[in-house]
Amino acid sequence: MLASDGRDEDWVRCAQAGDRKAFSELVRRHQDHVYRYLLRMLGSHDDALELTQDAFVKAWQALPQWQPEAQFRTWLFRIANNAALDALRRRKLVEFVPLEDSFDAPSSEPDPEHQAQATQEVRQLEASLKKLRPEHREILLLREVEEMSYEEIGRVLSLSEGTVKSRLARARVALIEIHARSGP
């Protein structure tokens, strides 16, 4: 039996052999990150809940293709990101159509006092993020929220590090411009 603090890769090998409990451990480790990413990509709690499950089921099905050289986390995010883009295409929201004004997601700190303390800048940032094109939103979320390196982002989005660098800069400038247009 593996230690609960063991490496992802060890758990993946067990899961590849058909061990569903090992896969459940991987799900628990990554579920919050995948859900958070999908929520900010899609802007809907219900869609994020559904797609998070779908992403993990797809990951289970695709386990035989997983290679030890790949980080499980970036491999999983690649599956989740593809699911998010497919969902956006289906909803015809890929281009130009902004997401809802506010997420209907439960917060980990839902008390009204905390929400009242949320700064105006954070609220503006959330609103501006939803107006970004998906290709800009995805790269910013991976960098700023998931704190991935350029190399990891490249693996998730199938981009070279040079492209990650330039697209990230364009995404930031686009976000600043949207933020400036929306005003204080």
Partner: peptide, 30 residues
């Protein structure tokens, strides 16, 4: 500002939900 974004948690245990779906559909790795 990004670091100040509030964290969001699903409030759901996906492990059991996913495991149930895998078991119900008898989904095996392709």
């Amino acid at each position: 500002t990004f670091t100040a974004l509030p964290d969001v948690a699903p409030g759901v245990d996906f492990a059991s939900l996913v495991d149930r779906r895998i078991a119900a559909a008898a989904v095996v790795p392709k």
